[in-house]
Write a protein that binds this DNA or RNA. Sequence first.
DNA 1: TGAATGGGCACTAAATAGATGCTATATTCT
DNA 2: AGAATATAGCATCTATTTAGTGCCCATTCA
Lengths: 145, 145
Amino acid sequence: MLRLTKRSEYGLMALAFMAQSGQSYTSVREIVAKLRIPRRLLAEVLKDLSRAEIVEAVRGPGGGYRLTSPADQLSLARIVEILEGSVAVAKCADGSSCDLSPSCTIQEGINLVAQRVKSVLDDFTLAQLADRGPQGSQSVHEVAV
Amino acid sequence: MLRLTKRSEYGLMALAFMAQSGQSYTSVREIVAKLRIPRRLLAEVLKDLSRAEIVEAVRGPGGGYRLTSPADQLSLARIVEILEGSVAVAKCADGSSCDLSPSCTIQEGINLVAQRVKSVLDDFTLAQLADRGPQGSQSVHEVAV
DNA sequence: TGAATGGGCACTAAATAGATGCTATATTCT
DNA sequence: AGAATATAGCATCTATTTAGTGCCCATTCA
């Protein structure tokens, strides 16, 4: 339905929280306490972000996650791609040609649309997302470098 | 996954086909023969488009559907909205506030993203979509007025 | 050693999307 | 009138995707 999944929502919420918090490491427990989202699911999401090196993890007491790069250098496209595979508007717009309909005439156009949607996400950074929250407009850009 | 449903895909394919064909009325049978998509599903889609007055229907031999307005005056946003309810990138971006997380800080940002994605679809017309097909660059703009 | 914290794996449940069957109604043609 | 062509409506079934959970392991630190 042209909609982001919960994984993306949760991931973005968590990352924005980290960007805003200013702490060095933020644990799943803390995020869950603040954002009220399913603990285990958030853990899955953060694990994926950790694998993709969007965040780095430290175990043990005092541990948790932190961003590996400045929030203004992290695009939503990157995050969403990691969390839901791709941002393709249609299956035929991710490279795999539209085998279903050899005579489909809209593929080229759809691809263009897909590209534009992608650009929107490419151009939107985590910092921009976080800046608009309640604690926004502070120091999101320099956090967690 | 930020993806259009089959309903939208089929709808767009069919509408583009109609825009390109130059015929007055195009039947489901003809479209199916050409595009190889599930007949009954396409019928559902066209019925919805008919209800929304994107196309008008005529029954009986020689009947079928035709666009009610020029292809260059029909945005993808309009079509997609009809076929899948809305184009909201997140549930909290369609008016209904994000009740799940009172402390969600990204709502405002997500809304902005949603708006931009919407713009992409608002600015892309059926004519643009159809023009890129094999029979493109002809007379799509003046068809079926 | 024990408490805190992430990592991995497998699984269930819920929601959404895709597809189809059947019958009714309108229109045209013979 | 009757047959053929088309869309309209409704219900339903299935498949796929998404959401959410349980359990145990590994690491770190006091």
